[in-house]
Design a protein around this nucleic acid. Structure first.
Lengths: 168, 168
DNA sequence: ACTAATTGGATAAAGAATATCCATAATGGA
DNA sequence: TCCATTATGGATATTCTTTATCCAATTAGT
């Protein structure tokens, strides 16, 4: 009943991409450094966002990733489903059929349980499809004017910032 | 984003217990046969239900398990939490703090995300706390008069039923 | 065409969920 | 009191998912 870390990571990636200077794609290696995971793992995460249509990637020199659409059109549901597949709580291994041998009742029971849980699924889907990445950015940064910068190059100064913080 | 099989198993156990002749506790070994898992594993599953207050168990001769309260007082939420612990979707590894070094914004962001997800948690909690085992039994069996039988002894005839089904 | 930078996809390692075995404790009946 | 029955708890095996790594395919610039 818990989302995987991937969701948290994906959200951070989206924040980076949303504040990236629009001209330049952001290299996945930079993102991986920033999130503290291996470059190759990060590619895999990003791939999921690309498949879902949240991000686009270009290979080759100066390649990288950028958002496929405005942050206002990216919902939390998109992100969750990109990382974990469709929301479907009930594992449904057909156990009821194995445990009770009465065709009529087991089928009825199966159906009932599925409907109870898919109702739960629907609640989540409805809720998460109403929260967009733009909402998060706006509330998180306190402004709807997104600052943009080139995260490909800002790494160094950022590290310096961090060191200054640590010294205090 | 999926519940574990344990939830499905627990629900089957509850159906068995709810239709068990009230006088006699049901032996966990019988349940294990019926659900096709090992006796020792079944005992662990059942233990979780006992700890949560859904079932009570007595050891010794003619011991076993029975429901701790009427099916109408057992909610789906109880069952889910018995098997998986409290509903809490967000993994919250503190990744945001690691990725961005600005104290002010990261704290704000953390808080925001937590609240978005705990709102989702609340939706589920509210929904699942309204569905009771009695509801499931009633709709699944088509009657609110629960048939009761002694599953400790019915196993044999049940197996015969199954064999007859298979022969067809 | 060559080289450097990057993504894409197969594969391995780690971790969590699932299941089992075994030793111990509790209970009721002979 | 002794024995058969049943739950409890700890250690361990197994399977599945998540996490991470390595190498091959693609692209841009020269």
């Amino acid at each position: 009943m818990q989302l995987t870390k991937g969701v948290e990571q994906a959200l951070c990636i989206i924040v980076l991409l949303a504040t990236q200077e629009s001209s330049a794609p952001l290299a996945s290696d930079e993102i991986s450094k920033r999130l503290g995971v291996s470059p190759s793992y990060m590619k895999k995460i990003i791939r999921k966002l690309v498949v879902q249509g949240i991000a686009v990637s270009v290979s080759g020199n100066n390649g990288g990733v950028s958002l496929a659409k405005p942050a206002a059109d990216i919902t939390m549901l998109d992100v969750i489903e990109a990382m974990e597949g469709p929301i479907q709580m009930y594992p449904d291994t057909g156990l009821i059929g194995l445990a009770f041998h009465d065709k009529q009742y087991t089928e009825k029971g199966q159906k009932l349980l599925r409907s109870v849980f898919s109702q739960g699924d629907r609640l989540l889907i409805e809720y998460f499809s109403k929260v967009t990445a733009a909402d998060l950015l706006k509330e998180g940064l306190g402004t709807s004017n997104l600052p943009t910068l080139n995260w490909n190059r800002e790494t160094l100064s950022d590290v310096i910032d961090k060191e200054r913080d640590d010294d205090k």
